[in-house]
Protein backbone atom coordinates (compact mmCIF):
# COMPACT_ATOMS: atom_id res chain seq x y z
CA UNK A 1 0.00 0.00 0.00
CA UNK A 2 2.76 2.40 1.06
CA UNK A 3 4.87 1.35 -1.89
CA UNK A 4 1.91 2.07 -4.14
CA UNK A 5 1.58 5.61 -2.78
CA UNK A 6 5.33 6.09 -3.10
CA UNK A 7 5.29 5.00 -6.71
CA UNK A 8 2.38 7.25 -7.35
CA UNK A 9 4.22 10.19 -5.81
CA UNK A 10 7.27 9.50 -7.94
CA UNK A 11 5.10 9.33 -11.04
CA UNK A 12 3.38 12.57 -10.10
CA UNK A 13 6.75 14.18 -9.46
CA UNK A 14 7.94 13.11 -12.90
CA UNK A 15 4.77 14.37 -14.47
CA UNK A 16 5.17 17.74 -12.74
CA UNK A 17 8.78 17.86 -13.95
CA UNK A 18 7.70 17.12 -17.50
CA UNK A 19 5.00 19.76 -17.37
CA UNK A 20 7.43 22.31 -16.01
CA UNK A 21 9.86 21.47 -18.80
CA UNK A 22 7.05 21.75 -21.33
CA UNK A 23 6.00 25.12 -19.91
CA UNK A 24 9.61 26.28 -20.06
CA UNK A 25 9.89 25.29 -23.71
CA UNK A 26 6.59 26.97 -24.56
CA UNK A 27 7.64 30.05 -22.63
CA UNK A 28 10.98 30.32 -24.35
CA UNK A 29 9.31 29.85 -27.72
CA UNK A 30 6.76 32.53 -26.89
CA UNK A 31 9.32 34.98 -25.60
CA UNK A 32 11.62 34.77 -28.57
CA UNK A 33 11.30 36.67 -30.86
CA UNK A 34 10.31 39.48 -28.48
CA UNK A 35 6.96 41.01 -29.08
CA UNK A 36 6.40 44.65 -29.95
CA UNK A 37 2.86 45.85 -29.38
CA UNK A 38 1.95 48.39 -32.04
CA UNK A 39 -1.20 50.39 -31.43
CA UNK A 40 -2.57 51.71 -34.67
CA UNK A 41 -5.81 52.68 -36.28
CA UNK A 42 -8.55 50.63 -37.86
CA UNK A 43 -8.18 52.62 -41.06
CA UNK A 44 -4.52 51.63 -41.41
CA UNK A 45 -5.30 48.00 -40.62
CA UNK A 46 -8.33 47.94 -42.97
CA UNK A 47 -6.20 49.27 -45.83
CA UNK A 48 -3.98 46.17 -45.57
CA UNK A 49 -0.79 48.20 -45.05
CA UNK A 50 0.47 46.15 -42.11
CA UNK A 51 -0.17 42.86 -43.81
CA UNK A 52 2.04 44.14 -46.62
CA UNK A 53 4.66 45.95 -44.58
CA UNK A 54 5.29 43.82 -41.50
CA UNK A 55 6.86 40.80 -43.24
CA UNK A 56 9.62 43.17 -44.42
CA UNK A 57 10.18 44.41 -40.87
CA UNK A 58 10.30 40.86 -39.53
CA UNK A 59 12.78 40.06 -42.28
CA UNK A 60 15.01 42.96 -41.24
CA UNK A 61 14.60 42.39 -37.49
CA UNK A 62 14.32 38.69 -36.88
CA UNK A 63 14.45 39.08 -33.10
CA UNK A 64 11.19 41.05 -32.98
CA UNK A 65 7.64 40.17 -33.70
CA UNK A 66 4.97 42.85 -34.07
CA UNK A 67 1.47 42.50 -32.75
CA UNK A 68 -0.88 45.11 -34.18
CA UNK A 69 -3.79 46.35 -32.13
CA UNK A 70 -6.10 48.23 -34.46
CA UNK A 71 -8.31 50.72 -32.63
CA UNK A 72 -9.18 54.40 -32.96
CA UNK A 73 -6.32 56.94 -32.70
CA UNK A 74 -7.59 58.11 -29.31
CA UNK A 75 -7.62 54.59 -27.94
CA UNK A 76 -4.24 53.81 -29.54
CA UNK A 77 -2.65 56.75 -27.71
CA UNK A 78 -4.38 55.74 -24.49
CA UNK A 79 -2.93 52.23 -24.79
CA UNK A 80 0.52 53.74 -25.32
CA UNK A 81 0.02 56.13 -22.37
CA UNK A 82 -0.50 53.27 -19.93
CA UNK A 83 2.19 51.05 -21.43
CA UNK A 84 -0.22 48.52 -22.93
CA UNK A 85 1.35 49.36 -26.29
CA UNK A 86 5.03 50.00 -26.99
CA UNK A 87 4.65 52.19 -30.02
CA UNK A 88 1.80 53.98 -31.78
CA UNK A 89 1.25 54.81 -35.43
CA UNK A 90 -1.61 57.28 -35.45
CA UNK A 91 -3.13 60.23 -37.28
CA UNK A 92 -4.54 62.69 -34.80
CA UNK A 93 -2.07 65.62 -34.61
CA UNK A 94 -3.76 67.51 -31.76
CA UNK A 95 -4.05 64.40 -29.60
CA UNK A 96 -0.44 63.47 -30.44
CA UNK A 97 0.86 66.84 -29.31
CA UNK A 98 -1.03 66.51 -26.03
CA UNK A 99 0.33 63.00 -25.65
CA UNK A 100 3.93 64.13 -26.07
CA UNK A 101 3.40 67.21 -23.88
CA UNK A 102 2.08 64.97 -21.09
CA UNK A 103 5.36 63.06 -21.22
CA UNK A 104 3.87 59.80 -22.47
CA UNK A 105 5.90 59.57 -25.63
CA UNK A 106 9.12 60.58 -27.29
CA UNK A 107 10.50 60.91 -30.78
CA UNK A 108 7.28 61.68 -32.62
CA UNK A 109 8.19 61.36 -36.27
CA UNK A 110 6.23 61.82 -39.46
CA UNK A 111 5.80 58.64 -41.45
CA UNK A 112 3.38 59.21 -44.31
CA UNK A 113 0.19 60.93 -45.26
CA UNK A 114 -2.88 60.27 -47.24
CA UNK A 115 -5.99 62.34 -47.37
CA UNK A 116 -9.48 62.26 -46.06
CA UNK A 117 -12.30 62.44 -48.53
CA UNK A 118 -15.96 63.20 -48.12
CA UNK A 119 -18.04 60.48 -49.74
CA UNK A 120 -21.74 60.38 -50.37
CA UNK A 121 -24.51 58.55 -52.22
CA UNK A 122 -23.71 57.64 -55.80
CA UNK A 123 -26.80 59.43 -57.10
CA UNK A 124 -28.04 62.87 -58.12
CA UNK A 125 -28.62 63.75 -54.48
CA UNK A 126 -24.92 63.17 -53.87
CA UNK A 127 -23.90 65.44 -56.73
CA UNK A 128 -25.89 68.31 -55.23
CA UNK A 129 -23.32 68.80 -52.49
CA UNK A 130 -20.18 68.20 -54.55
CA UNK A 131 -17.94 71.19 -53.88
CA UNK A 132 -14.21 71.85 -54.05
CA UNK A 133 -14.35 73.00 -50.45
CA UNK A 134 -15.25 70.68 -47.60
CA UNK A 135 -16.83 73.34 -45.38
CA UNK A 136 -19.27 74.30 -48.12
CA UNK A 137 -20.15 70.66 -48.72
CA UNK A 138 -20.85 70.08 -45.02
CA UNK A 139 -23.04 73.18 -44.91
CA UNK A 140 -24.94 71.84 -47.91
CA UNK A 141 -25.47 68.47 -46.19
CA UNK A 142 -26.71 70.17 -43.02
CA UNK A 143 -29.03 72.43 -45.04
CA UNK A 144 -30.52 69.47 -46.91
CA UNK A 145 -30.61 67.46 -43.66
CA UNK A 146 -29.10 64.61 -45.65
CA UNK A 147 -27.98 61.65 -43.56
CA UNK A 148 -24.40 61.89 -42.35
CA UNK A 149 -22.72 59.03 -40.49
CA UNK A 150 -20.07 59.89 -37.97
CA UNK A 151 -17.56 57.35 -36.68
CA UNK A 152 -18.43 58.49 -33.16
CA UNK A 153 -15.58 56.48 -31.64
CA UNK A 154 -12.91 59.11 -30.80
CA UNK A 155 -10.76 57.87 -33.68
CA UNK A 156 -8.47 60.14 -35.70
CA UNK A 157 -11.05 60.30 -38.46
CA UNK A 158 -13.73 61.22 -35.92
CA UNK A 159 -11.48 63.92 -34.44
CA UNK A 160 -10.92 65.39 -37.91
CA UNK A 161 -14.61 65.27 -38.70
CA UNK A 162 -15.40 67.21 -35.52
CA UNK A 163 -12.78 69.81 -36.45
CA UNK A 164 -14.31 70.19 -39.90
CA UNK A 165 -17.81 70.68 -38.46
CA UNK A 166 -16.40 73.16 -35.95
CA UNK A 167 -14.89 75.15 -38.80
CA UNK A 168 -18.34 75.51 -40.38
CA UNK A 169 -19.77 76.83 -37.11
CA UNK A 170 -22.57 74.26 -37.33
CA UNK A 171 -23.48 71.79 -34.60
CA UNK A 172 -24.54 68.54 -36.22
CA UNK A 173 -26.75 66.83 -33.69
CA UNK A 174 -30.14 66.28 -35.22
CA UNK A 175 -31.69 63.03 -36.40
CA UNK A 176 -29.89 63.21 -39.77
CA UNK A 177 -26.56 62.95 -37.97
CA UNK A 178 -25.84 59.36 -36.88
CA UNK A 179 -23.02 58.30 -34.59
CA UNK A 180 -22.06 54.76 -35.48
CA UNK A 181 -19.37 53.98 -32.92
CA UNK A 182 -17.65 51.53 -35.27
CA UNK A 183 -14.56 51.20 -37.44
CA UNK A 184 -14.09 52.85 -40.86
CA UNK A 185 -14.98 49.79 -42.92
CA UNK A 186 -18.24 49.23 -41.02
CA UNK A 187 -19.18 52.90 -41.31
CA UNK A 188 -18.56 52.92 -45.07
CA UNK A 189 -20.77 49.85 -45.48
CA UNK A 190 -23.42 51.57 -43.41
CA UNK A 191 -23.19 54.80 -45.44
CA UNK A 192 -23.53 52.77 -48.63
CA UNK A 193 -26.58 50.90 -47.34
CA UNK A 194 -28.26 54.05 -46.10
CA UNK A 195 -27.22 56.30 -48.97
CA UNK A 196 -25.55 58.61 -46.49
CA UNK A 197 -22.47 60.85 -46.39
CA UNK A 198 -19.38 60.16 -44.32
CA UNK A 199 -15.79 61.30 -43.91
CA UNK A 200 -13.26 58.57 -44.65
CA UNK A 201 -9.59 58.14 -45.31
CA UNK A 202 -8.91 57.45 -48.97
CA UNK A 203 -7.16 54.14 -48.29
CA UNK A 204 -10.11 52.43 -46.65
CA UNK A 205 -12.45 53.83 -49.27
CA UNK A 206 -10.31 52.58 -52.16
CA UNK A 207 -9.92 49.14 -50.62
CA UNK A 208 -13.71 48.80 -50.34
CA UNK A 209 -15.02 51.02 -53.11
CA UNK A 210 -16.07 48.28 -55.54
CA UNK A 211 -18.45 47.04 -52.85
CA UNK A 212 -19.82 50.48 -52.06
CA UNK A 213 -22.50 52.56 -53.74
CA UNK A 214 -20.68 55.72 -52.81
CA UNK A 215 -18.76 58.39 -54.69
CA UNK A 216 -16.24 61.02 -53.74
CA UNK A 217 -17.95 64.34 -53.01
CA UNK A 218 -14.96 66.40 -51.87
CA UNK A 219 -11.25 65.76 -52.24
CA UNK A 220 -8.04 67.77 -52.38
CA UNK A 221 -9.03 70.44 -49.87
CA UNK A 222 -5.92 71.19 -47.71
CA UNK A 223 -8.12 70.78 -44.63
CA UNK A 224 -8.39 67.09 -45.54
CA UNK A 225 -4.72 66.13 -45.33
CA UNK A 226 -4.16 63.16 -43.03
CA UNK A 227 -0.69 62.96 -41.51
CA UNK A 228 0.47 59.75 -39.82
CA UNK A 229 3.16 59.82 -37.16
CA UNK A 230 4.96 57.21 -35.13
CA UNK A 231 5.49 57.75 -31.40
CA UNK A 232 7.41 55.53 -29.00
CA UNK A 233 5.71 55.18 -25.63
CA UNK A 234 7.74 56.37 -22.63
CA UNK A 235 6.22 53.45 -20.73
CA UNK A 236 7.10 50.84 -23.36
CA UNK A 237 7.80 47.38 -22.03
CA UNK A 238 9.87 46.65 -25.13
CA UNK A 239 11.47 50.06 -25.60
CA UNK A 240 14.30 48.77 -27.76
CA UNK A 241 11.86 47.05 -30.08
CA UNK A 242 9.67 50.12 -30.24
CA UNK A 243 12.68 52.27 -31.17
CA UNK A 244 13.71 49.72 -33.77
CA UNK A 245 10.28 49.85 -35.39
CA UNK A 246 10.09 53.66 -35.32
CA UNK A 247 13.55 53.81 -36.86
CA UNK A 248 12.71 51.24 -39.49
CA UNK A 249 9.41 52.68 -40.67
CA UNK A 250 11.03 56.10 -41.20
CA UNK A 251 14.01 54.54 -42.97
CA UNK A 252 14.50 54.95 -46.68
CA UNK A 253 13.80 51.29 -47.40
CA UNK A 254 10.47 51.27 -45.56
CA UNK A 255 9.47 54.61 -47.03
CA UNK A 256 10.05 53.20 -50.47
CA UNK A 257 7.83 50.22 -49.63
CA UNK A 258 5.06 52.49 -48.35
CA UNK A 259 5.21 54.50 -51.57
CA UNK A 260 4.74 51.33 -53.60
CA UNK A 261 1.80 50.04 -51.58
CA UNK A 262 -1.46 49.98 -53.48
CA UNK A 263 -0.03 51.10 -56.82
CA UNK A 264 -0.56 47.71 -58.38
CA UNK A 265 -4.17 47.39 -57.21
CA UNK A 266 -5.44 50.97 -57.36
CA UNK A 267 -3.05 52.60 -59.81
CA UNK A 268 -1.92 55.06 -57.16
CA UNK A 269 -0.26 54.79 -53.74
CA UNK A 270 -2.58 54.66 -50.75
CA UNK A 271 -0.07 56.53 -48.59
CA UNK A 272 2.55 59.11 -49.53
CA UNK A 273 5.73 58.60 -47.46
CA UNK A 274 7.13 61.85 -46.03
CA UNK A 275 9.48 60.87 -43.21
CA UNK A 276 12.61 62.12 -44.99
CA UNK A 277 11.37 65.65 -45.57
CA UNK A 278 9.73 65.84 -42.14
Amino acid sequence: MDRGIGRCAVALGRLAGLMAAGALILWSCASRPREIVLASTTSTEDSGLFEYLLPYFHEAHRDYRIRVIAVGSGEALRLAAVGDADVALVHSPEAEEEFVAAGHGTARRRVMFNDFILVGPDSEAGAACAQPNVAAALECIARLRAQFISRGDDSGTHARERLLWEATGLKPEDDWYLEAGQGMGAVLMMASEKGAYTLTDRGTYLSLHDRLELRIIVQGDPALRNQYSVIVSSHAENAAGAQAFAGWITSEAAQQLIGDFGVETYGRPLFVPNAANG
Partner: peptide, 26 residues
Protein backbone atom coordinates in the same frame (compact mmCIF):
# COMPACT_ATOMS: atom_id res chain seq x y z
CA UNK B 1 -26.79 43.13 -32.86
CA UNK B 2 -23.48 44.81 -33.71
CA UNK B 3 -23.60 43.52 -37.28
CA UNK B 4 -27.21 44.23 -38.17
CA UNK B 5 -27.81 47.15 -35.79
CA UNK B 6 -24.59 49.04 -36.41
CA UNK B 7 -24.35 50.49 -32.87
CA UNK B 8 -25.90 53.82 -33.92
CA UNK B 9 -26.14 56.15 -30.91
CA UNK B 10 -29.69 56.61 -29.68
CA UNK B 11 -31.09 54.12 -32.20
CA UNK B 12 -29.45 50.74 -32.30
CA UNK B 13 -26.94 51.05 -29.48
CA UNK B 14 -27.66 48.43 -26.84
CA UNK B 15 -25.89 47.45 -23.62
CA UNK B 16 -23.46 44.98 -25.17
CA UNK B 17 -22.46 47.08 -28.19
CA UNK B 18 -22.10 50.15 -25.96
CA UNK B 19 -19.79 48.24 -23.63
CA UNK B 20 -17.54 47.36 -26.58
CA UNK B 21 -17.45 50.98 -27.77
CA UNK B 22 -17.02 52.62 -24.36
CA UNK B 23 -14.20 50.24 -23.43
CA UNK B 24 -12.44 51.10 -26.69
CA UNK B 25 -12.84 54.79 -25.96
CA UNK B 26 -11.38 54.28 -22.50
Amino acid sequence: VMMVGGNVAGETRVITTAIVLETRRG
